[in-house]
Amino acid sequence: MEDFFDLYRKDRWPTIFCPGCGVGTVMNCFYRAFSELDIDQDRVVFVSGVGCSSRIPGYIRADSIHTTHGRALAVATGLSLSNPDLKVIVFTGDGDLGAIGGNHFIHSSRRNADMTVFCINNNIYGMTGGQASTTTPHRAFSTTTPYGNMEFPFDLAELAVTAGANYVARWTVRNVKELIGSMRKALVKNGFSFVEVASPCPTGFGRRNKMGDPKQMYEWLKIKSVRKEKSEFWNMDPVDLNISGQITIGEFVDRNRPSLGSMLKSMMNNE
């Protein structure tokens, strides 16, 4: 793949994403990772739910299905089981995956269903204009938490590790090199692989938390993110719950448990 627009649909440009959004960076990183691998673009299906990040498959020049809110992983399960030769790649966000699709996230990880999931976590519902999500930091402001978020956020990466995923990593959009590397690893992994990307939403999240300028949001991600190796918190509190706290980044698990597809295949072959 020579060109960015071999992967993306040029006829759909420009995208709907706001200035300062992290999705463009993730799309670029994905292009880098995908183009370095020898994957036949006609043997890949892109799946998403609803939200900003879920619009990515609509821009990809491949078979793609933009499903209902939260259901991407369940649709992907049916896809990959019915045609195990296809590579199934999901783009999702913190609202789509952590809230409305939370149950499917847990069980797809548990089943080790054959798919690669990229979650762009911007700590907010961007598409609907900035409501609190399951990863909005404690005490952060949003249109539905005008007095600060009284709840505590999910750690999506830790959830995937605990539930049984084969590969789990988390980076911010600032860690471009590491992100591309993890995306590449996730794409060739059998079973359930999961990469979470902490990403800025200056429009929906930043403006209400004194970070309306994209530069401030990138600065925030820089200050917040701590590598797993340097973190005292990992295994204790991988995502610090407060807005000023830390996000632990790195590769959290890389294992080879048998995938759902391979288990069903061995059952059918009476192994």
Binding site: V45, D63, T77, N103
Partner: peptide, 20 residues
């Protein structure tokens, strides 16, 4: 496959139908 709920069930059926 036994899914985690009925929403997941029809979702998986939709996915399966799209691979024919």
């Amino acid at each position: 496959i036994q899914m985690e709920d009925e929403i997941a069930s029809i979702s998986a059926v939709i996915g399966s139908s799209w691979v024919g």
